[in-house]
Amino acid sequence: MKKQKKKHMKTNIGLLIFGTILLAVSCGPKDELSQKKTQLAELKKSAAEMRASIETLEKEIAQLDPAFAQENRKAVLISTLTPSSGKFEHFVEVTGSVLSKKNVNISGEVSGRVQEIIATEGMRVTKGQVLARIDAEAISRNIEEIEKQLELAKIVFEKQERLWKQQIGTEIQYLEAKNRKETLEKSLASLKTQEARTQVRAPFNGTVETVQARLGELVQPGTPMFQFVGDSDLFVEADVSERYVGIVNKGDAVAISFPSIGQELKSKVSAVGAIINPNNRTFKVEVVLPAQAEIKPNMIAVLKIKDYESASAVTIPNYLILQDNKGDYVFTVENNTSKKRYIKRGKTFKETAEILEGLTGTEVLVDKGFREVGDNYAVNVAK
């Protein structure tokens, strides 16, 4: 029994030793990894504390020593550009409307019933072309009657004239015959004029905008029958702010664009209003237009009136200009360092600013990144 117990105890001890060895083998690398992770966390914490201490010391030293701050500031990545030199033009841009001095209502000149309407809306006609006819039957009858009376009056006059030349008859008979003939001639001419007016004609070349008359309608003198627009004498009328009084003048060059048809024309200011509209504080400007088939009355037009020009100007993009209490300034690049330079700005047109003082046109300006730099900042120009 004792031998069996000893043998059993030896077996248990062996198994325990084997288990301990196996556990030690299996847990050894995990303990080492855990130790390394703990060590790394401690080092990171120390590095963070060290970086914070370094930053604090740098700030404290920078406050005491500005030169140190400039030397240790990180270079700002930027792009650059150079000012442009050359012709600079400034324009006043206003929106106007195309009008016509020959936009008229055509009316009947005699009384009568509309007998025929020839014109249609949108029809292009030439000067003198018949647009409509008014019943002229009564006038025609009067013409026939006067013509017969005139025929007899001419015969009587001719006979009286021959007798008068032969000194036969009295002078009063001759004069009465002559007066009768001439009166009838004038009456006939008047009736023929009235007959001609029964035909409504185009006063000039143009387009029939609207037809207001109706077939069979009774019209009176002055009754509108057609709205008619001429091809010529088109102009653009626009309202210009009163701050341009004395700047925009008659004869100034104008660029006219028509957004609806994508067309541009060149012209000049033909008239400048002398009165300021108290409602919107503007004055009228007129610009004559050359005859163009595509341009129609009431079309929208954009006027660019040149009010300033410089043959040799230094210009830069307007967005580069910054301001402080002293005035406008830009940043230039000198020896990889940004420099603050004050300028005097002139006129600005389409995001381009004229520089009157401060730049010669040979400088290198900070473009992208101009808001990230300051005076005497180290910069790195992107390539």
Rank of each mutant, 00 (worst) to 15 (best):
R243T: 14
I13D: 03
D328E: 13
Q35N: 09
Q63F: 10
A378V: 04
L356S: 05
T210D: 10
K148E: 05
G246E: 04
F235T: 11
F331Q: 08
K347F: 13
Q227G: 01
E144G: 08
I143M: 07
K3H: 11
R197D: 06
A253M: 03
R197G: 00
K347V: 12
S257M: 05
A313P: 02
T348D: 12
A353T: 13
Q166K: 13
N142G: 04
F91N: 13
I168N: 08
R133S: 12
I143C: 02
E363Q: 07
T348A: 11
Y244N: 14
T282L: 01
V248A: 05
S310L: 10
V114G: 00
Q212H: 04
V240A: 01
I276Y: 01
I134Q: 03
E372M: 10
P29D: 09
K87Y: 09
K368S: 12
Y377I: 09
N279T: 14
E237Q: 13
V272W: 00
K10E: 07
S100H: 02
E116K: 08
L265S: 03
D239N: 10
G361I: 07
D252Y: 08
C27I: 10
E309C: 10
G112Y: 03
D135K: 10
E372D: 15
Q149P: 07
D324F: 08
N179S: 08
A301E: 03
F283G: 12
A213N: 06
K59N: 15
L152V: 10
L184T: 04
G358S: 02
S267R: 10
I21L: 04
H8G: 00
A253Q: 04
K268L: 10
V285T: 06
L356T: 15
K45E: 13
Q166I: 02
K344C: 01
N205H: 06
Q35A: 12
